[in-house]
Amino acid sequence: MTGRILRNLYLAALALFIAMPMLVIVVFSFDANRFPALPWGGFTLNWHREALADAMILSAMKNSVIVSLGTAVLATVLGFSAAYLDYRYMFFGKRPLMLAVAVPPAVPVTILGMAMLAALSRTPMFGTPAGIIVCHVAIAVSFSMALIRLRLGELGPDLEAAAWNLGASPLAALWHVVIPFCKPSLIAAFCLSAAVSFDEFMVAWFVGGVNETLPVRVLNLLQGQVNPKINAIGTLVLAISLILVTLAQRFARLGGAGKETA
């Protein structure tokens, strides 16, 4: 019995530790104190208003939306290609290709950012949202491929073969059978890729140049004076991340049920 109580206490402490920073951001974005402190200084929406009036924050927000949407679309398409390739075919060079897709998240973003900056600095993409997108896709495709590959594992050997047997060409079977079957995981991959891109700040900081995304704006604000606007943007950023990740989980789980056949 005491074991049980201790266990639950420990789990609660862990949950609190993990949730604490996010709670602090959200709660103190509504605090009237200029610098978050106890006691609570009263409820205000000032910081949110100020943040939304800040031109740099607005432009960062615009960049973030462009970058994460672009990343999500491309990473989902490329992630599906890689997943289907891995699921269906055996070919020379498959292992290195799959490694090139899977490994990027395992490389520290500082090094990745430096390498991508070195490579992009001689191209016109440097300092543009497009430059951030191509780099983010290279990272996010790993997550996208993993989610879609899991779903493909549930496809079962017969469904696609049945389509061929009924006269569908490989491309037609892909379009009419495999992609509809993978739809939940495609949505999940889209949301997760968007979330990965939306939160990434090192690579975006290195290759984005003057085009800041929201997390880069936060990073730059952090290096300056204490600024209550950070809490306000933070609340927004966390809300968007939370929605994206929750959606990704919902759809990925839908795929996990593996009952419906689209």
């Binding site: 993990i18 951001i25 979330a195 952090l222 991340s241 990740v245």
Partner: peptide, 19 residues
């Protein structure tokens, strides 16, 4: 547990600064 893996780390570091 999945949520914090994919939500802004830089913000959380800032939050710890605040705390």
């Amino acid at each position: 547990l999945i949520i914090p893996v994919f939500s802004s780390y830089i913000l959380k570091v800032y939050a710890w600064q605040v705390v």
